[in-house]
């Protein structure tokens, strides 16, 4: 099954809608609650990163029998130093983003902790692509 969602940078009212849809789909597919939580926490962190740090993005979700694969592609400023961005506590979040409840510098480490495979690629001034996979069976 394949699903696609659009994400608008700066829109903190709608942030999380794609993650919410995916959560409902996984529930319908009877995926275990523990695995659903891992997938949607990672997806939500990725979705909020587009809202918080980029201009716009798309989320591509592929659900196979044994795994879910997610690609988050955005048009935005990109990440100059990915290794640094991955460090717990590192954040360049603006005051507005912090007011919205984000900017702990925990999103990317959270994604890493909740997924089986994760990859980030980014071109400064162009955008960022985050890919991850989670096995759907324990």
């Amino acid at each position: 099954m394949h699903f696609e969602y659009r994400v608008q940078g700066g829109d903190f009212v709608r942030a999380g809608q794609a993650s919410s849809q995916v959560k409902k789909i996984l529930k319908q597919l009877n995926v275990s609650p523990g695995i659903i939580k891992r997938v949607v926490v990672a997806l939500y962190e990725g979705e909020v990163n587009i809202v918080a740090h980029a201009f716009q993005g798309k989320i591509y979700v592929d659900i196979e029998t044994n795994k879910i694969r997610v690609v988050l592609d955005d048009v935005g400023p990109g990440i100059p130093d990915i290794e640094m961005a991955m460090r717990p506590g590192f954040s360049t979040a603006s005051p507005i983003v912090r007011e919205m409840g984000f900017g702990a510098g925990m999103g990317l480490p959270n994604i890493k902790a909740n997924t089986d495979k994760m990859k980030i690629s980014s071109v400064v001034g162009v955008g960022t692509r985050l890919e991850f996979e989670v096995a759907l069976k324990e």
């Binding site: 949607v40 909020v48 409840g101």
Partner: peptide, 16 residues
């Protein structure tokens, strides 16, 4: 939390 916005509720939704 002292954060009263949609994202607080979204966070609760995602984290059960």
């Amino acid at each position: 939390t002292g954060l009263a916005n949609m994202q607080a509720v979204r966070t609760a939704e995602m984290a059960d």
